[in-house]
Design a protein around this nucleic acid. Sequence first.
DNA 1: CCTAAAAGGATACATAATGTCTTTTTAGGG
DNA 2: CCCTAAAAAGACATTATGTATCCTTTTAGG
Lengths: 145, 145
Amino acid sequence: MMELTRKGEYAIRGIVYLAGKPLDKVCLLSDIAAAVDVPPTFLAKIFQQFSKIGLVRSFRGTGGGFMLGRAPENITLLEVVEAVEGPIIPNRCVCAPQDCDRSSFCNVHPIWKQVQEQVCGVLTGVTLKDLSDGKIKPQPTDLAK
Amino acid sequence: MMELTRKGEYAIRGIVYLAGKPLDKVCLLSDIAAAVDVPPTFLAKIFQQFSKIGLVRSFRGTGGGFMLGRAPENITLLEVVEAVEGPIIPNRCVCAPQDCDRSSFCNVHPIWKQVQEQVCGVLTGVTLKDLSDGKIKPQPTDLAK
DNA sequence: CCTAAAAGGATACATAATGTCTTTTTAGGG
DNA sequence: CCCTAAAAAGACATTATGTATCCTTTTAGG
Ligand code: SF4
Ligand code: SF4
């Protein structure tokens, strides 16, 4: 449960690599794939998805390639993950309570909502800039003392 | 990503049902399955797993069935989930950093560790008693203001 | 020894993950 | 205008996982 797929992992590697380059630098897919050690054909599919929603911009033909669609400090890890993995849904009832007859009286239901919020919270708190800089936000170290 | 499987969902339903019964009451698998609307054969497999690790106790033969292995206030949701889904691992590097060449310098790595802690934190904070009672812990409502 | 019930094992089917391959579109440059 | 570089699009192949069912074996009561 809860496991990021290869696709998600590769997606992050690829776009973090881009985030480490100057914003206007156009990078070849094949170069990115080699740098982050991902099968190029697979990464191509991933970047196509990114491109569709504007996370990266693509240029075709000679001299083409990819660059970030926005400044890396304005792209959160959550966006990247959800772009390729879909929304973070610990249990189907979180986004479709009507699918479960028991949701009206179920005590577990709110727990999954809570889990979702926590996970999204962590991933929203990290930007591509943080990741490429190596300057990870000081974690709250939330010890409910 | 992050989605509980049917197995996990059914497991929770089943054991929460048990938690709502007197501790010494032996329940028939078929009754449990019917009550929580889960395929009986599937629930059987799940309860076998529970039984092996002592989360529930089983009795064979005539008059047999299942009961909780411990008091419901001493069983956390995390235990139940991990019993059937395995450990909560947002990314493989969380439990096997040696599998990834990049883990030594990777900035994403600690994020997954953080996610894991948050999720486990939420699930550890809920017991079967809470779930069967309907008395869900007052959530921290962690608004980092 | 007969019956109830769980345990264990094998199997079937569907879906999702993980890639690869081929063809098409777009763009630059001589 | 053509040639080449590069991404986009779509089809396909393979494997792993999820979701379940069935059958046989073990255990226990009466
Ligand atoms: S039983 Fe509760 S937790 Fe499970 S799917 Fe339905 S609402 Fe969600
Ligand atoms: S690249 Fe980083 S996040 Fe991805 S698997 Fe390796 S250590 Fe983990």
